[in-house]
Amino acid sequence: MSGGDDDKHLRPASRLVRGGRRKEWTGPVVNPPVWRGSTHLYDTDADRHAAGGNNADGQFFYGRRGAPTQWALAEALTQLEAGAYGTQLYPSGVAAIAGCMFAVLKPGDRLLMADNAYDPSRSMATGLLARMGVETTFFDPRDLDGFTAAVPGAKAVWLEAPGSLTFEMCDVPALAAAARAAGAVTMIDNTWASPLGFAALDHGCDIVMMSLSKHVGGHSDLMMGSASAGKRWYTALRRTAQELGQVVSPDDAALAARGLRTMGVRLEAQTRSALQIAAWLESQPQVARVLCPMLPSDPGHALWQRDFTGGCGLFAFVLASNDPAASARVADALQMFGIGYSWGGFESLALPIAPATYRSVMPCGTGGAPALRLAIGLEDADDLIADLAQALALV
């Protein structure tokens, strides 16, 4: 069991099982043990000096640089991400977003951010980054000509595909190519698809970020994020994370590694159920439209089909109602869907959404009508449909 570079030729399902399970990290057991320790000891002072100069996973030095529990998770994620040299771990998805921004941007730089990006990404741009002197311009990622005209002079671009809440697709390879031609760094939040569904670096992005709290953890019991990149930007990510004192706990890393082993089968099951439920919703008179690029009827389906190899259980739908309270009424009536943030766990969630609050240049995607985001879990799809049917009857 190597679990190392020799496994890169394997298909994703095999890499999910084997990744990061080096013999020197696992010993005689299947999983890397949970190494809890702030202090690492040396036989001699010369060994201490040597460890300090070898800043790489696999080298004991001090707790902030991790130990086998964290190294194994990072290596497994790197093996899944085609084109990655390394992966940096962070204590939350938002911390990973900040880690990417700080590794690339400095005062005086200009950032282009997709207008349908995750709200904390937008808030970071208008708050923390603005305070440090970074100018952000929001853009419609579906408008390639407009983007090509705007990108000269920008230091970086932040994408998300599909978009947050309203799930618009964009042409990631074309946007990344235009950014690279202008000398800009392309970063992408790839939490929705994960590397199993979209190989972001292979499609032209320079840095790919994920919230591991979602699909990788898979059980709604940890907070963590990651960023993967080729050697140049991975080195910058690692250096910046260390300068900020970013470290993940070994206990959370062990939970994330455990979740990673079953991520493939969970995503397949959740995607299958989501497609069944989304298609059913399209046929309901109380539903105006379903926002899901996996559906053939979706405006972004051709792009999703061209570039993506998988999906997930997250999508939204718009109610055929002018009553702003209708989405909350549906959510409150659901018995099998929890009401809560996050997604990617084994349980289904429903969340009323108002995306107009988080848009600057794009239409809100719902026409201002009441809408809900669904995160489909591992329950039986027919049971979830029955629950949605009784709740929609109240609209």
Rank of each mutant, 00 (worst) to 15 (best):
G3Y: 00
V17D: 11
R18Y: 09
G19K: 04
T26P: 06
T26S: 03
P28V: 01
V29I: 14
V29A: 09
P32N: 06
G37W: 03
H40D: 12
Y42S: 12
T44H: 04
R48H: 11
A50R: 14
N54I: 02
N55A: 12
A56Q: 14
D57W: 14
Q59A: 11
E75D: 15
E75N: 08
A76T: 01
L77D: 01
Q79V: 01
A82W: 13
A84F: 11
Y90V: 02
G93C: 06
M101L: 13
F102T: 09
P107R: 03
R110F: 08
L112S: 06
S121E: 13
M124T: 10
A125M: 08
A130C: 03
F138Y: 10
F139G: 05
P141Y: 05
R142I: 00
D143T: 05
D143W: 06
F147Q: 08
V151L: 06
K155D: 00
W158Y: 13
E160Y: 01
P162H: 11
P162M: 06
A176I: 02
A177Y: 09
R180Q: 10
G183V: 05
A184Y: 07
W192M: 13
S194M: 14
S194C: 08
A200K: 03
L212I: 03
K214H: 14
S220V: 00
S220L: 14
L222R: 13
M224N: 07
W233Y: 15
Y234C: 07
L237I: 07
Q242V: 01
G245W: 11
V247D: 12
V247Q: 15
V248I: 15
D251L: 10
R258D: 08
L260R: 09
R261H: 09
R266W: 00
L267W: 00
E268A: 15
A269F: 07
A274Y: 11
L275D: 12
A279H: 10
E282T: 11
Q284R: 15
Q284L: 05
Q286Y: 08
V290E: 02
P293W: 07
M294H: 06
M294F: 09
G300N: 06
A302P: 01
W304A: 12
W304Y: 15
D307W: 15
G310D: 01
G311P: 09
G313P: 09
G313C: 09
F315A: 02
F315L: 01
L319M: 09
A320S: 11
A326K: 07
A328T: 11
R329W: 05
G338R: 11
I339A: 14
Y341H: 14
S342Y: 13
W343H: 15
G344V: 03
E347L: 08
L349S: 12
A350H: 05
A350Q: 02
A354Y: 11
P355A: 01
Y358G: 10
P363D: 03
C364I: 00
L372P: 04
L374W: 04
I376T: 04
E379A: 15
A381Y: 08
L388D: 07
A393K: 10
V395E: 08
